[in-house]
């Protein structure tokens, strides 16, 4: 890969877009969020289900179609947060948003964001921030509606 595009399409993102961790919707989710990026028509459905054995933790699954950035980001989200404590989710979402809106000034903390730190390069491409945020916006919406 060449020049600036290397930063945008880092290997981790491309790899996640191929692996699609967490892809495949749940049979019986507690909440499903459907988000669309109106400029390109990309969509995602993101399911949350409270773990019956550990009621403070949630399972996350998703399905969708879109560009490498949106798909890679969704996969990173699922890998990082499936089974995570509910109470932690808002802070993680906020951290991703802060990094993606930073225009390249905030690198992101791998302990908080896992592979999603690889999305830092996206923040220099203002037109692509929405792509990277799509899954996180779906998660935010789902968390807010979780009973």
């Amino acid at each position: 890969m060449t020049g600036g595009l290397d930063q945008l399409y880092g290997d981790l993102i491309v790899d996640h877009a191929e692996r699609r961790v967490g892809a495949g919707l749940l049979e019986d989710p507690d909440v499903r969020s459907h988000q669309v990026n109106p400029t390109c028509g990309d969509e995602i459905w993101l399911d949350l289900a409270v773990d019956p054995e550990r009621p403070d933790a949630v399972h996350i699954a998703w399905e969708g179609h879109g560009c490498l950035i949106s798909q890679g980001s969704a996969s990173m989200l699922a890998e990082l947060l499936d089974g995570a404590p509910r109470a932690e989710l808002p802070a993680r979402i906020a951290a991703v948003r802060e990094m993606l809106h930073s225009r390249g000034t905030i690198a992101g903390d791998e302990d908080v964001l896992g592979d999603a730190v690889a999305l830092a390069g996206v923040s220099r491409y203002v037109a692509r921030v929405k792509c990277a945020m799509l899954a996180w916006v779906a998660l935010e919406d789902a968390v807010a509606r979780l009973p």
Binding site: L5, L8, Y9, C40, C67, I69, Y125, R128
Partner: peptide, 8 residues
């Protein structure tokens, strides 16, 4: 995806 083509 078209978006990625456009970026390239």
């Amino acid at each position: 995806h078209a978006h990625d083509v456009g970026q390239y």
